[in-house]
């Protein structure tokens, strides 16, 4: 009895310290999420967004055309053997912007792109007419008579590897984004349009080869000090960020590899306002 009585104050103190530590850790985590940045070397109270990873919603500004001037969020498709600067571009009869050479995009139900999480395509991904049903990032938009849209997926629907969720990093006012999971869906087809590009995992495999490869990669990594194989290739999306207004611009080009539009290139331009917040649901 005496021994128990003597032990109680120690236990209480230990519990209090543990609760304080846990509460402190949770508070630190939540404040990090609220500030929208994982690391916080240069706190910026005006914008709420700091140097480091920007976690939250990149709310998209709808695309608009005034004469030859295109603003907001848009997309172009370069034909094979063309180049990003001069085209030739596909002329989308459903768009009036730049004679159909530009397709204007509107934000979807989420308002735009969320980082550090996926905005996956629904199941089914298409209706019977081939129109894309993914509507979180952008509103499904007519492209040659059939609606196309965007999603970010844990496993890329076209190239098949597991890909990281979108991340955007701010450094010296410049944005660098890993958008490897950016996938366009149109007419019952999926096209990876990410930057950098995921390394495809679609080659034919003998029975058991995939498991054997996984075992070998583990052994090579653990005992042979082999560097893990790259999962993405090419350059990331880049852009600018205004810390005062939190206005951002992200742009990149992405070559289509495989499928019916092998060799075509998508040019993407996202504009909008960054809203620091929580990660996207998984």
């Amino acid at each position: 009895m005496n021994r128990n009585r003597g032990a109680r104050p120690t236990q209480v103190v230990t519990m209090v310290v543990a609760v304080i530590l846990v509460a402190g850790a949770l508070a630190a985590c939540s404040s990090g999420q609220k500030s929208g940045a994982k690391s916080n070397p240069k706190a910026n109270t005006t914008s709420g967004a700091n140097a480091g990873e920007l976690v939250g919603l990149f709310r998209l500004t709808p695309g608009a055309a005034k004469g030859n001037q295109i603003t907001g969020t848009w997309f172009r498709m370069v034909q094979p053997q063309g180049d990003a600067q001069h085209g030739p571009y596909m002329i989308n009869a459903n768009s009036r912007a730049d004679g159909g050479q530009v397709t204007l995009l509107k934000p979807g139900t989420s308002g735009g792109l969320r980082t550090e999480g996926y905005q996956s395509e629904p199941t089914p991904a298409f209706d019977s007419g081939g129109h894309s049903l993914a509507d979180a990032i952008t509103t499904p938009t007519p492209f040659f008579g059939v609606n196309f849209s965007i999603s970010t997926n844990r496993v890329d629907p076209q190239t098949k590897p597991a890909v990281a969720p979108p991340t955007v990093t701010l450094k010296d006012g410049k944005l660098t984004a890993d958008l490897a999971s950016w996938s366009a869906s149109w007419n019952k087809q999926n096209f990876n349009q990410g930057a950098p590009k995921p390394v495809p995992n679609t080659a034919a495999k003998a029975p058991g080869q995939e498991k054997a490869q996984r075992v070998w990669d583990w052994v090579a990594g653990k005992y042979l000090d082999a560097a893990p194989k790259p999962t993405v290739t090419g350059s990331a999306a880049t852009g600018t960020f205004d810390p005062k207004t939190r206005a951002f611009v992200l742009q990149w080009s992405s070559h289509i590899e495989g499928g019916p539009f092998n060799g075509f290139t998508g040019l993407w331009h996202l504009e909008g306002i960054f809203e620091p917040g929580q990660r996207a649901p998984g």
């Binding site: 081939g130 129109h131 008579g145 007419n187 019952k188 087809q189 019916p260 539009f261």
Partner: peptide, 12 residues
């Protein structure tokens, strides 16, 4: 939409 879907799928 059907024609383009069938053609795209076969070309793919």
């Amino acid at each position: 939409p059907t024609i383009s879907s069938d053609l795209a799928s076969l070309v793919g």
